[in-house]
């Protein structure tokens, strides 16, 4: 069945909400407006305003409210209009959601999903174009998921909802309209499992969310030039499925990591460190990272394009690790 990423998310939440009355959705414009990006189309009509809760523009307040509701036995899904606004709720996410289980010695748990689009769309400016996954990944107590395809989006969101931990689920505005094959009927994809999106023998490229599409396009182009690229999507950023990447690196001896976020302390730095520790002897050369530029996202189109990794940059990086630049 061909579905858009948006429809896949909608199905995942709809199926889960039909299954379990403890699940409710809360956020700005999730109800009568049908979602800022129309992800929750039809929800308030099907589930009613008790379970599809429109909020005022108070991210700290309603995220905290949802965390409290989770402590008392509900299974909230918080929609952040975009992940940028998660910064406003960061105290709740970091100090409460992530720590309450540990601080209480295991007495309490916070089964919550906080989801919404991260990364840049087109010319939305510096405050609406951020890739903040590394911030969330840094915090013990959180899981972080960033699917790239409709099939993954559906299966992973269902798992995230069922997971009894706080899960940050990062979508992307530019992915909502993308289409892909989605398995008919009920299925889930476990958190913490990477997937080889394209098998290859010469070099491994790790990329997630929007950047996965860029990496696949680069791989296609490189295959025409005789380079056989393996592309891996970690899908879940934390816990990271290191084994799948290590297995690939043992085969190829070369690794490129692509991310849209800022370079310094970015997710790629962590993945590189993990691979150096786990598979140093298998590497034929240094790991190469392709990242967003270290600037607040500029508005102007050519500058914005220059700030975000693209196919030519990934191609160049792959060639450089293969000594073919």
């Amino acid at each position: 069945m061909l579905l858009s990423y948006r429809e896949a998310l909608n199905q995942a939440m709809r199926e889960e909400m039909r299954r379990d009355p403890r699940i409710f959705l809360i956020g700005e414009e999730v109800g009568y407006y049908q979602g800022a990006f129309k992800v929750t189309k039809g929800f308030v009509e099907e589930f009613g305003p008790q379970r599809v809760v429109d909020t005022p523009i108070t991210e700290a307040g309603f995220t905290g409210l949802a965390i409290g509701a989770a402590m008392a036995g509900l299974q909230p899904i918080v929609e952040l209009m975009t992940m940028n606004f998660g910064i406003v709720a960061l105290d709740q996410i970091v100090n409460n959601a992530a720590k309450i289980r540990y601080m209480s010695g295991g007495q309490l748990s916070v089964p919550i999903v906080i989801r919404g689009p991260g990364s840049a769309a087109h010319q939305l400016g510096a405050q609406h174009s951020q890739s903040l996954e590394a911030w969330f990944c840094h915090v013990p107590g959180l899981k972080v998921v960033a699917p790239s395809t409709p099939r993954d989006a559906k299966g992973l969101l269902k798992s995230a909802i069922r997971d009894q931990n706080p899960v940050i689920f990062i979508e992307a505005q530019l992915l909502y309209g993308t289409k892909g094959e989605v398995t008919e009927g009920e299925y889930t994809i476990p958190l913490g499992q990477a997937e080889v999106k394209r098998a290859g023998a010469d070099v491994t490229v790790v990329a997630y969310s929007k950047m996965l599409l860029v990496a696949l396009e680069a791989a296609d182009q490189l295959s025409r030039e005789g380079l056989d690229v393996e592309v891996i999507d970690p899908r879940t950023l934390k816990p990271l499925d290191l084994d799948t990447i290590v297995t690939s690196v043992k085969k190829t001896g070369r690794l490129v990591i692509v991310e849209e976020g800022w370079r310094f302390c970015g997710l790629g730095a962590q993945i590189a460190d993990s691979i150096y520790t786990a598979a140093f002897d298998y590497l034929d050369g240094p790991i190469v990272r392709v990242t967003g530029e270290e600037v607040p996202m500029p508005y102007s189109r050519p500058l914005e394009d220059a700030a975000i990794p693209d196919v030519p940059r990934v191609v160049a990086a792959v060639k450089s690790v293969c000594g073919a630049a």
């Binding site: 307040g61 409210l65 965390i67 509701a69 989770a70 036995g73 709740q92 409460n96």
Partner: peptide
């Protein structure tokens, strides 16, 4: 201030 939203959540859940 950080626990005050949690309290509203406990009340929301009940």
């Amino acid at each position: 201030g950080g626990h005050i939203p949690l309290a509203t959540g406990l009340a929301f859940a009940t």
